[in-house]
Design a protein around this nucleic acid. Sequence first.
RNA 1: CGGGAUGUAGCGUAGCCCGGUAUCGCGCCACAUUUGGGAUGUGGAGGCCGCAGGUUCGAAUCCUGCCAUCCCGACCA
Length: 490
Amino acid sequence: MSRSIISKDEDYSQWFNELVIKSDLAEHSAVRGCMVIKPYGYSIWEKMQAALDQMFKDTGHSNAYFPLFIPKSFFSKEASHVEGFAKECAVVTHYRLKNDADGQIVVDEDAKLEEELIVRPTSETIIWNTYRGWIQSYRDLPLLINQWANVVRWEMRTRLFLRTTEFLWQEGHTAHATAEEAIAETEQMLNVYADFAENWLALPVIKGRKTANERFAGALDTFCIEALMQDGKALQAGTSHFLGQNFAKAFDVKFSDKENKLDYVWATSWGVSTRLMGALVMAHSDDAGLVLPPKLAPIQVVVVPIYKHQEELDNISAFVKELTKELRKKSISLKFDNRDTQRPGFKFAEYELKGVPLRVAIGSRDMQNRTVELARRDTKTKETVPQQGLAERIEALLEEIQQNIYQKALKFRDENITLVDTYEEFKRLLDEKGGFLSAHWDGTSETEQRIKEETKATIRCIPLNNPQEEGRCILTGKPSVQRVLFARAY
RNA sequence: CGGGAUGUAGCGUAGCCCGGUAUCGCGCCACAUUUGGGAUGUGGAGGCCGCAGGUUCGAAUCCUGCCAUCCCGACCA
């Protein structure tokens, strides 16, 4: 394996692919479009799951699990939903194999299913079909459920973490007595996602509303968090949908209110996926490898001993044992890499590639001076510090690194939101600078569509709390009341 | 689904035009010397050259078919 990865300026796309593979997050599998998430990558996902799961529970949600398979007929019950997903569904048609005359394994045509099963691309239909049996009265509401699951969408073109045929995610599905309550839930979960992105992923996001074109299939309103990657392309990092009564009507889910009037239930759904892993990599990493925010790093601190003789190593080990204890009290994870089979320089490079936030190197010189060498992954700076108070220093530094990574990403994001007033400027900036372009739009799907066809840029969102401002649409010149954010996106 | 490319050791590759049983680097194994930024030396192991046919005395190389993957587009979390 070559030692270094291609620089991200040379080929961003290839840089991303090489980085994911060489840093041991994931690899391509034997199945087209599907990846193997390796232990190092999966442990980051587990940390994301743990943090999000706690946030869901803190906002009153419970986990449940629904089937992987959905009867085909369920899909046709909500018209726009089926239209949105029909083209990318994996379908189970048979349930048995057999040996043919040549001894080959073939599908047993006698084992054809009466009704085909769809491998879930999302679970609204099976869940709402189930909710019918769970909800009779306003006393059963709200129903606040989340599911951690895998889903399958047969995408034409896949990319590690960003778009795989099968991916892992969570999907929240809630039921409410009133539209207002459901809308409040939709907004609450959007805020949870934004909070998670900024405080855990160190990823600044813009909260906004999708246009009708970009809305989830079956939703009345879709909210999203949009992030900016280092190559200037936008990435939708999470969505929260207000589904109105669409699914309740499709699956006949009614409840009696306090006045004993029957009404359809109001719904929301919201989700984030392993795509966040892609966002994490693309937002912070550099040509030397991953840069992980300390809160999600599987290893927060690595200690590399430098020694010639066994007794030197023993001294260092004794010191590290104490440090490990102190850090454990602070819930900081430390790896002591005392492998004798690799030299220190090799280890330094390896942990840089893997994005470990802090590295401590200790040699005999340090042991004599009662110091260690501390190296930060985010700034690539090194300093020699006293052993005294090291645990406290590490704790503070990890916090500082978390903040620094966020601030750096925030600065980049803010520098790449550009106000644009003419279509020529718009097209020029898309090619030369990228990022978010804040521009006036006449509010029609036709205009949005035309801009997309001509420039590949889409409206990422209409930011929440968007300032109202008179202007003219960059394409048609028609009057507009606010700017919206355009970008080329993943 | 359109366009482009690639399949040779665990990884990355040379050889292919012009047919003669496979090159180099990394990694791996053993031993020794090493250890403050990806160690060095010596010795060694490892190959149905993507799969199936065909041409030929002989195929990694030429021909046909298939399969797979990657990249670029249209579609999407």
